[in-house]
Amino acid sequence: MQTVRTGAVAWSREDLIRAAKAIMKIAGWSLALVWGAYLARFTSALGPIHTFLFGTETPEQILNARAAWGQFGDFVGGTLNPMVSLLALVGLVFTILLQQEAMMLSKKDTEASQKALSNQTRLSLETAKLQSLAAALEVITEMHHQAVAINSISAIDLLKQKEAIAGQILEINERLTRQAQVEDQEAQTEIS
């Protein structure tokens, strides 16, 4: 869960969502209340209720009432504008948190991809080295067989070279096996 630290108070994503919903509710109800009061005052849609509440009014009284309602509308607008601005600020902070979270996930994915690419490159180099040593071993083995067939002294040197190459092949195989075990352990750790 991502949090924004401001002094000693931490706001979670859920707190921001709750605050935005509360501000939207307050703004919506305030607007509905003012709009309903305006309609009740200046329309005759409610007929007898309007007459009962406000009586019969002269055009001058209605004009004065509209001026007062204009001032009240300015008051309501002055009250709702900061709420809407606060809602926009909460939305901006929420968007920044989401972007930060997305960037962190992207960074982790990039690091994992780089690690996998590095491992793959190293593995490819080890495999190429292993293949070249296997080819050299085949050549030396063939040369050794020919030297043994003719009872040549170089057969002993070829045997030593063959043993050295076989040792290198075994060493690379052990290194690759250890690396595979480490990668399996890391994969198990990431899953857990």
Rank of each mutant, 00 (worst) to 15 (best):
S106R: 02
S106V: 00
S106T: 02
K107S: 12
K107P: 03
K107G: 00
K108W: 01
K108V: 02
K108Y: 01
K108F: 05
K108N: 01
D109W: 03
D109I: 01
D109G: 04
T110L: 07
T110N: 11
T110G: 03
E111M: 12
A112M: 13
A112I: 07
A112Q: 15
A112G: 03
S113F: 13
K115D: 04
K115T: 00
K115R: 11
A116R: 07
A116I: 07
A116T: 04
L117D: 06
L117I: 15
L117M: 08
L117H: 12
L117T: 14
L117W: 01
L117R: 12
S118I: 14
S118P: 01
S118Y: 10
S118Q: 06
S118R: 13
S118W: 12
S118L: 13
N119M: 09
N119C: 04
N119W: 10
Q120M: 15
Q120C: 11
Q120W: 02
Q120T: 14
Q120E: 15
T121F: 07
T121W: 10
R122F: 06
R122N: 14
R122P: 07
R122E: 15
L123F: 11
L123T: 05
S124Y: 14
L125Y: 06
L125K: 08
E126N: 13
E126A: 01
E126I: 10
T127W: 13
T127G: 09
T127D: 13
A128G: 13
A128D: 14
A128Q: 12
A128Y: 11
K129I: 12
K129A: 14
K129C: 01
K129R: 15
L130M: 13
L130A: 10
L130V: 10
L130Q: 09
L130I: 15
L130P: 07
L130G: 11
L130K: 06
Q131E: 12
Q131R: 10
L133A: 04
L133N: 13
A134I: 03
A134K: 06
A134N: 11
A135I: 12
A135T: 15
A135Q: 15
A136F: 02
A136K: 04
A136G: 06
A136P: 00
L137D: 05
L137V: 03
E138N: 07
E138H: 10
V139I: 08
V139W: 05
V139N: 10
V139Y: 09
I140R: 00
I140F: 00
I140V: 13
T141I: 06
T141G: 05
T141H: 05
E142Y: 01
E142F: 04
E142K: 08
E142I: 02
E142W: 02
M143A: 08
H144N: 10
H144F: 01
H144S: 03
H144K: 10
H145F: 00
H145S: 03
H145E: 11
H145G: 05
H145R: 14
Q146I: 10
A147I: 01
A147W: 07
A147H: 02
A147P: 00
A147F: 00
A147M: 02
V148L: 03
A149E: 02
A149R: 05
I150D: 02
I150T: 08
I150V: 03
I150N: 02
N151V: 00
N151T: 00
N151D: 03
